[in-house]
Design a protein around this nucleic acid. Sequence first.
DNA 1: TGTTAGCACTCTCCTCTCTTGAGTGCTAAC
DNA 2: GTTAGCACTCAAGAGAGGAGAGTGCTAACA
Lengths: 347, 347
Amino acid sequence: MKLNPRQQQILLAIIKEYIDTAEPVGSRTIARKYKLGVSPATIRNEMADLEEMGFIEQPHTSAGRVPSERGYRYYVDYLMQRYSLSPEEEDLIRQEYTRKVRDIGLLLQRTGQLLSQLTHCASVVQSPKLEVGSYKHIQLVEMSPGRAMLVIVMDSGMIQHQMIDIPTSITGSDLTTISHVLNAKLGGSTVETIKITLLKEIYLELTRHRQILDMVLEALRSSSASVSEDKIYLGGLFNILSHPEFHNVEKVKTLLSLLEQENLLANLLAQINQPGINVRIGGEMSCREIQDCSIVTATYEIGGQPIGYLGVLGPIRMDYAKVISVVDCMTKNLSYALERLFKGGGR
Amino acid sequence: MKLNPRQQQILLAIIKEYIDTAEPVGSRTIARKYKLGVSPATIRNEMADLEEMGFIEQPHTSAGRVPSERGYRYYVDYLMQRYSLSPEEEDLIRQEYTRKVRDIGLLLQRTGQLLSQLTHCASVVQSPKLEVGSYKHIQLVEMSPGRAMLVIVMDSGMIQHQMIDIPTSITGSDLTTISHVLNAKLGGSTVETIKITLLKEIYLELTRHRQILDMVLEALRSSSASVSEDKIYLGGLFNILSHPEFHNVEKVKTLLSLLEQENLLANLLAQINQPGINVRIGGEMSCREIQDCSIVTATYEIGGQPIGYLGVLGPIRMDYAKVISVVDCMTKNLSYALERLFKGGGR
DNA sequence: TGTTAGCACTCTCCTCTCTTGAGTGCTAAC
DNA sequence: GTTAGCACTCAAGAGAGGAGAGTGCTAACA
């Protein structure tokens, strides 16, 4: 379906105007504001064609035109011009990412807040999925009689801990011994490469402590299973309430109840997220609750490895040009910040 | 201001009916549904008195009566009967808390969800503020040349970790040595009781590693400062949208924007939360954004020590009897679950 | 003196009608 | 191919009228 240049101009004008005002756009408005050098009547003719091709729609006969999902898709793919962040916006971002970060959670949360603030939409930020990697250090610490903490450090920088019950006969120095053996034998192995022979060796060396070994190995196994924590930070939900399309409380309710079900949301986003910047418009997503929304996501990475995504969720009538720029920019900034945090170098 | 028994009965009836229907309550309704043995006319007379005393209000002359905040307060303090959880509700709670918990965050989040589900209100759950306590174990793990992870385990079960830059000349065994000395010297000390003499001893023993020691001690110090993480888990926000008082999007927006500002919310809740069960009704809170809501909170504890609070937030017209029972019950269950998790005993 | 029936009065809410205005499609002229 | 003109459509808002719920007041009753 090819559009001639004038049709493209008119479609672009309708979309820009509608994103701005949230009101159906009439032929006169376009003729007045976007000097195309033709009269409203001509524009009307072209609009009739655009409607026939499915790029715009009419809420009712005597209203102006509104972009259809197909129209937005055409806009995003062919018409849209890159938005350049204003100096103030760039400042805001730079300010955030030159801070010293202590807590990753806080960093992700503030990233989400910034995304929302800049786009006036809701934001989603997935916590990084660190590769599990290989065991770097294993430590058993006696907490109280019959109770120990197992601390596991992986070479990816991931750390996990877990309380386990132990026989009360075990002493602190026993735990140190066990820790030493485990480190010596398992250090450098990945979760998958723990061989039976290796386990046999460990059992041989620690025959006295079979019982506690079983517990520790079980804990190691289960901890590697629970790695995919996959937390999603939501931010700026109240922003979407400002958009007139969400003045209907029922809509807000269905949307909110979806967002609060973290696993559903995670599935949806995982489905959407591909390498690069992803734009999903309304019905392009197969999820009923979110048909009135569009989502823009992108993947952030450490050392070239994708480890998570972030994105923006708003009404279909969102400012795609700006949202895409912001998402792109924030992805790069977050990647860089995480890289510094994990791989070191500079402060 | 004393109420005679009949006035109390009528006030109780008005509040029950209004909580149920969200509609102003008329004298005929009360006469019909709550057999007080008097005619609507008599009830009208009493209602006029109750209104004069400020316990109920009239939205407009030809409407029924609505409880005022003062009326709710009287109800909560004197009239309300304890609500007993239904067997299904008790089952639901028991089911949740007999699961094996791995992650505290998950436990708190699910607690919030349960609170919301049972009360049809939004929930807030503060993460436990573990006492810092004394150092149980300190470990430096080499991650890559020039980069190490410092792991700190406190006897309260709190664990913290942090990446630090180290001179590239330092080897893995250097780090082990340093860890040993730190454990030997600092183990059992609290953050406050680290004396200068102790530090001098450490520096003496590790003169070769002054540089890295400075870093580690700095990290120890700053980590104890960042302990008060004070995360608040929100849940079931969409629930409050079901209540007719939140069909106004503006109200929802102000409320949501307050809830998303975690520090503001934390301040507010800290102000509210006293030992025992706290009920704050609308204007009793000095926060403008939340004047249309009531909050019920309570404190959970480990071993008798209060370590956090949880609560329910909903419209002023909430079912206080039920909410209070649920909050009370969940507080006890959460306390018990955390106790098992930290102090051990039974699985 | 407390209680009740009766009644006029008030005020919201719903429905219906009418008007206004924005915008369209079609036709004929340029 | 473009444009002016015109009849037509439809949503939204204003206004009027009626229904209904509930009240306060008065007078009668126990």
